[in-house]
Structure formats: C-alpha cells, structure tokens
Design a protein around this nucleic acid. Structure first.
Lengths: 324, 324
DNA sequence: TACAGTTACGGACCGCGTAAGCATA
DNA sequence: TATGCTTACGCGGTCCGTAACTGTA
C-alpha cells in the first residue's frame, strides 16, 4: 500500500469513477492510475470497485471503508506537509471561521481586519450559521475554528477555549418608560411585549423559563436571529428588545437606550473551538491571540494536550475571562 | 513522503532514538533507515531530530508534531490491512475489553466463554478499572470496547450503545428484619448502617443525595468497589448492602435475601462504547451481538454513521432495552 | 468512430543491502 | 576497540509515460 495508491483511489472516486479524469487531475497518465488501483486491490485481496466489463460502476462496501480511512490518511499527510510550509515561515494558507451572527457582526470585525493586515496571504472565509449548523460543519472538517456561545454538548471531541462573558440587556427607544426605572426588574419588563432571539439561540438559561420561575409571563411579540433585526423592530416601537449587550453600538445606536441587566440574567460565555487533532497553522495561533489575549500559543497547546474538556477548563480557571 | 519513511521515523522513536535497533526491528538495514529519515527531513525542510554529531539526542518539537500524525496515519493504514484480513475470513486478531468490576464479574462470563468458543483465534484481554481509568485507557487507544455504566461525559467523541438497565437493590442476611417489611421504604433502610459502592461509582443519582432529599440520613458504615466485597460484609452482619441487582447470584447467595427496590431508586443504564473511527473487526461485531441481541451489525453501523450521541440515542429509542 | 480502460514495453528512478569510512566513549 | 551513524555503490524492483489493443455506445 502506497500513499500514491490511496491518492489515486480517492481521486477516482471524487471524479465519479472516471479514471481518465482522475489521472488528468493528478497530472499523470491514465494507465498508471488504472494499474495502481489494481495493484492495491490485489494487495488487499478484495475489489474496491464493482465493474461492468471495464467500466467502474460503484464502490464496494469494503471499498467505502478503505476510502474513509484513506481520506484520513491523506488529510494527515497533508497536515505534515503544511507543518513544513508553516515552519519555513510561509504564512500562506486559508482560515475558515464558523461563527454565529453576533460574533461575526460585533466581535470579529476589528480582529479580522487586524489579522488580514498581518497575514495578507491567508485566505479568510467566514461561514455563518446557527450553533447546530456550525457543529455540523465542524464535525465534517469544513471549518478550522468555530466561534460561538453556550452549548458545549453539540461539540463532542472538540477543544473549546473561553473567550469572554457577556450578559443579555434590555434595549428600548431613548425615551421609553423603562429608562426611568431606577433598577430594572423582570416584573417591569414583563409589562411590555418583548423582541428577542429565536429560542435555539438562547439555550438552557432560556428567557421564558426565567420569567416563569418568577411567576411572570413573557410576551414575546417577535423573535429574530440577530441583534440588528431586534434593534430595527425596537426602533419601530414594537416592543422591548432583549439581546446581547455586545450587539449595542454606542455610535450607531444613539437613538436607543441600553439598560444593563446583569442583576437579572445569567451570564453567557462565548468560546472558540476546533476539532481535536486538527492542525493549527502558525497564523491560526496568531488569530487566537488576536481574538483573546489570554489565548497564548502556550496555553492553546496545553489545551490540545488535555484529555478532555474538564482538564481544559481547569487550565483557564486562574485566568480572568473578560466581561463585555 | 512515503509510508515507509513514517514507519521508520516512528520505529526510531520507539527504540529510544537508536537507528540500528529500529532497523533490526523493521527487518531492514540500518543505512536504509538512516537515509530515509534524512530524505524525509530534506523533503519537509526541517530537522526531525536534534543531533550531537551523528547521534540522535532528541526529537524536535516539530518532529513531535510529525510523529503524532504519522502514528495516526500508520494506525489507519493498519486498519485498512486489517479490513482485508477480516474480509478474507481471517478471524485472528485481538479484542481488548475495558470494563468495570460489575460487568466483568456478573455480565461478561457467559458472553466471553461463548465468544472464545466461537473465535478461538482471537486474543481476548480484560482490562478492569474505574470509569475514569477506562476513559483514560480508551482515549489513548488502549482498548477496543468499553463496557460501563452511566457518565457519558467522560467519553467525548465516542459511540455509546445501550446494553441494559438495572436497579440498585438491598441485600441483607436471610432473616434480617427488613425482609419482613411489606414494601421497602427509604425510611426503613435508614434505620440500618449501609454498605455500598464507593461514591465514584454511583455518579449523579447518588445515594446520599437521594436520602437527603427525603430528609433522611444515610449511615454508610463501609464503601467498597464491588458487589463481592459488599456481600461479604453483609454476611458478617455489619450492615445492609445496597448494590446492583445483577451482583446477586441466586445459586451462591442462598444465605442472603435480595429486596427489590425499583420503586425507590433510579435506574442505571449500562452501555458499550468505542472511540469513533476505531476499526471494528468482524468478530467485534459478533461480540456486540452476543453482548446484547439488539446490537446487530446493521444498527451498530448506523450508530457509527451518526454524527453525535443524540442521533445514536434516537436509533435505539424504539428498542426495548432489557431490564436486569 | 469516439471513448474509456487494459496490456505491453522501455527508461528513469529509487529503495535496499553490502561494504567501507568516520566519530565517539 | 566497540558502537553507531554516514557515505559509496550496485542490483533489482517499481513507477511512469508512450503506444498499441480491446470492448462498448
């Protein structure tokens, strides 16, 4: 079994079982690919493809098993090669971030612009989605780093590093009656219709449950996926917004008032994570450092060596996580 | 980069950086190994070893990264080879089980004896330990299958399949006053000193908490790691045993009485699991089938394809899990 | 007659083993 | 002097490309 044989096998499959096409993609001759595939089948002792005459018409079940592992092997060998380009000071490559709207819109902009100035040769991609969608993307190796909030459960076998804590706050038009309350209470809020995140975003410490346990009723008039939409409807006077404090921009939101609610709601912790075993390029460590100063290369590497999430959390137990 | 170069690299490290010893283990010549290592270093563009003159004295940090990935590559290539021996009807191999005492002592004996009769060429190993120890073993790829109870959290990135449910029960000497209670209550139990498992074994639904929430005090006179020890001290009259019902043997424990407590305690679910991505040989599927008839090859393969534990649990939501 | 895969063959290369060289304890 | 790595060299295998062949739409 040779690495090249595995490359050929995978390429044939990625080219719809067309050996000629695979060969041209691999910049080699068609008979060569044909032969190596056959040699691999001979060595393994079972066919990788079902054939109709000379045409390949399907991958055998056993073949699928082989392909699955071949893909992993090729990925790791690619990782070894990347290590080398990395160490030779070559910062070219790509960085695919999976994030939720809140992070992409309010947290990442300064960090990203900083990063692309430092690493102009890195292709940066933002992939946005709900936490579920991000979990799916990441588990299929479609992203390098995930930046999200809450819900560790969707990311088994990941390394999750704390970024910062934040609270939900109430956002209302500048001269709304609530701005005149001395200290905001759930009861006061419950007098108004509420505009907040779709529930999939709020996770465990859900708003409805919180009000219910205080024997209050939460009148949600509208739910949205992001703070921009919430603020828009708050401006229209449809209700009181409850959203992440980081979604309030002092400059653009002068017509709105932000009412802090740290005494009412539970804190949320945002984190950055990646699949354990995924290669972190040099510039990815730099990105993490930009994202949060406490994510030094040293600490991140220690987290990678940890055996489970509890050990990682221990590593950061002494660190003061910023509160935004 | 060749697979052989990675093999050589790993072997050199496993032989304490002694190239000669590595070469002889690999059944090849020492200069060959020397050369391939050097070629690999040339190709990657950085040294894998620190050298003092001609001697290798350490692995470079970058080298460690390479070795880590090389190990994964070699493991997967080994898996591909095993697939082939498997499909050619060759049932030789090894099966390493990691289990807790309860399973090893009361559940596995008939299954294991059945299995080794069917697969005499499989080397079967039992590794026993606490759930923590098992989690550690498995995450370091030291076991094929883990059989344990409760606590999914210690096994992130694993495929966990339900085996059966069981309850804790009370075990007392044959003519103990408790045997005359019509329906056992926590209050009745709390009148006697209790002998039960070490707390690490009882997990979330811990006994002390259970008694406390009923405003009762649990007097544990002794805790032990296994049912045999518990029964021994119950026989000595030191107290009332609370242990897994499966630890009570009708034949050997005639001098004791088992008092069912399904109305008092929460059920426990035992499961079998393995690290996602680990190769299951044909005989391992057979072992799972012997372990629990509902673990058909079809279902196990579906579980492997699932993306997270929730999807796996869904697969088994229609199945009636046996109650022991 | 295109198209796709197999078979055949020759050249270049490469991995391996033997043998000799060299540095260190 | 023994140990262990490197260098040198020649053999054999293998990978690859070209070219010719075969079966199918």
């Amino acid at each position: 079994m040779k690495l090249n044989q595995l490359r050929y096998l995978v390429s044939v499959i990625q080219n719809n079982l067309n050996i000629t096409a695979a060969a041209s993609k691999l910049h080699t001759s068609q008979p060569g690919v044909s032969k190596q595939i056959k040699l691999l089948e001979d060595e393994l002792g079972f066919p990788l493809f079902e054939r109709d005459g000379r045409q390949l018409i399907a991958v055998t079940p056993a073949g699928l098993q082989v392909v699955e592992r071949a893909l992993r092997i090729l990925e790791e060998s690619q990782n070894i090669r990347l290590l080398s380009t990395d160490l030779n000071g070559n910062a070219a490559g790509s960085l695919v971030l999976g994030t939720t709207h809140t992070q992409a819109r309010f947290i990442l902009p300064p960090i990203v612009s900083n990063f692309i100035r430092k690493y102009p040769d890195v292709d940066l991609h933002l992939r946005q989605g709900s936490t579920d969608q991000l979990a799916d993307l990441a588990s299929r190796d479609q992203t390098d780093l995930i930046i999200a909030t809450g819900n560790h459960d969707l990311f088994p076998g990941f390394v999750l590093l704390p970024l910062f804590d934040w609270y939900r706050c109430v956002v209302v038009p500048k001269n709304h009656p609530l701005t005149r309350e001395k200290s905001l209470t759930l009861k006061a809020i419950s007098r108004y219709p509420v505009i907040t995140y779709n529930f999939s975003y709020s996770g465990r410490s859900s708003l409805p449950a919180m009000f219910e346990s205080a024997s209050l009723k939460l009148k949600t008039v509208l739910t949205a996926t992001d703070a921009d939409v919430i603020k828009t409807y708050v401006r229209l006077g449809l209700g009181v917004g409850i959203m992440a404090s980081i979604g309030f921009e002092a400059v653009n939101d002068r017509d709105l008032a932000l009412l802090p609610c740290q005494h009412l709601f539970t804190p949320h912790r945002s984190w950055v994570g990646f699949k354990r075993g995924r290669l972190l390029r040099g510039y990815m460590f730099e990105f993490l450092k930009l994202l949060a100063p406490h994510l030094t290369r040293r600490r991140v590497e220690a987290a990678i060596r940890a055996r489970n999430q509890a050990e990682i959390d221990d590593l950061f137990s002494d660190i003061v996580i910023p509160l935004l």
